[in-house]
Design a protein around this nucleic acid. Sequence first.
DNA 1: CCTACCGATCGGTAGG
DNA 2: CCTACCGATCGGTAGG
Lengths: 205, 205
Amino acid sequence: MDVPSQILSSATRLFARRGYDGTSLSAIAESVGIRKASLLYHFPSKEDLRRAVLDQLIQHWNEVLPRLLGAVTSGRGRFEALTRELVAFFQADSDRARLLVRELMDRPEEMRARLAQGVRPWVDLLSDYVRRGQEGGEILPDVDAEAYVVHVITLTVCGIAALPVVTALMPEGTSRTSIEARHVDELLRIAAASLFSTADTVEAR
Amino acid sequence: MDVPSQILSSATRLFARRGYDGTSLSAIAESVGIRKASLLYHFPSKEDLRRAVLDQLIQHWNEVLPRLLGAVTSGRGRFEALTRELVAFFQADSDRARLLVRELMDRPEEMRARLAQGVRPWVDLLSDYVRRGQEGGEILPDVDAEAYVVHVITLTVCGIAALPVVTALMPEGTSRTSIEARHVDELLRIAAASLFSTADTVEAR
DNA sequence: CCTACCGATCGGTAGG
DNA sequence: CCTACCGATCGGTAGG
C-alpha cells in the first residue's frame, strides 16, 4: 500500500477512536512510520486530511450502496436483506460508524450539507418503496416513510458505534448466540416489525 | 447561581457542542466571566471538571427516572408514556444527549462501567416488565427484552443528538406538523409497533 | 521524505 | 478570585 493510502487508513482509525481534536498529526505519522513534516507533504493541512478521510468513507458507501439497492426493487424480504446489509457494512469496520457519529457531533452543519447531497437521494428512493408498499397493503399505513428510513439508519450507525459499551447493559449470554449477535438480531427485528403489516417476519431470521 | 454551578453549566454546554478536547479551560472560564486560574480553584483539573459534569448529568437522570418508572407498574399505554418521557427528557436539553454520545465515543471503558452500575438496574427492571407482558400475550413473543430496551434508549439518545443534522434528509413539512415532531412521533411509533402484539397503538398518538 | 524550527495555545502552578 | 509564569505540545513552514 502506498504512503497516502496508509496515511488515510491510519487517520481513519485514529480519528474514529480518539476524535479529530484528540489525534495529533504526529500520532498519525508515527503509526505510518514517517515524520509529521512528511505527512504534511501528502496532505497540506490537518483539515485537508480530515476531508480526505470523510470523502473516502462516503465514496466507499456510494460504491457499495447501489449494489445493495438493486436487490430491493421487488418488495418484502428484500427490505430486510437491505437492512441486514446496511448493518453488515458498518459492522465489518465499526470505525466507519464511530467516525460518522463523531462528525455528526463535531461539524453538524457540514454533515447536513453532505447528507443532503449524498444520502438524501437514497432516503427518497427507499421512502418511495415504503409508500408503494403502503398502497399495496404489505406495509403499515401509519409508517412515516422518511422518518422511518432515517431512524433505521440512525439506529444502525449508533447501535454499532455504541455496541462495545451497551453490551454492559445486557446479561451474559447463557445461550450459544453471542450478546453482539442478539443485539443485531433485535435491531433487524425492530426494523421489520415496525414496518410490515403482518407479523410473518420470522421467516427471515 | 453560584460560581461552581455556573462553571458546571458552561462546561456541560461547551463539552457537548465542541467536545472535551475541543474545549479549553479558558473558553469555559471566559463564558462564566472569570479567569482560567480561578476556574482551577473550584475544579483542580480539567479531568475533575469532566467527571463533575458527567456526575451531575447522571444524578439528574437518577432523580427523574424513578418518578417516570413509577407510572409503568401497570402495563400497556404506560410503556408508551415512559418512552415519551424518555424522549422528552433529552429533548428538553439536547446537550445532555450530545454529551452522552461524545462520552460513549471518547471513553468507552469508563462509560461501560458507569452504565453497568447506574443504568443496568433500570434496563433489568424494564426487561422484566417486557417478559411479563410476553407471558400475558400483550407483547410480541420474539422481542429480546434487554436488546429491545437498549435499542430504544440508543435510538432516543442518538436520534435527538443527531436531530439537527438528519432533518436534512427529510422533505420540507407541507403539513402543520414540524419535521422534528414527525421525527419524534415516528420514533415512538417504531418503539410501540415493534413491542406490542396488536396494532392498536394508534390510540396513543 | 527528512531535520530544524516557528508562534500559538494548552493544562496547570506560584504566590498573593 | 487575580496576575504572572511554566514546560509541553500543537499545526505548520523553511530548506534541503
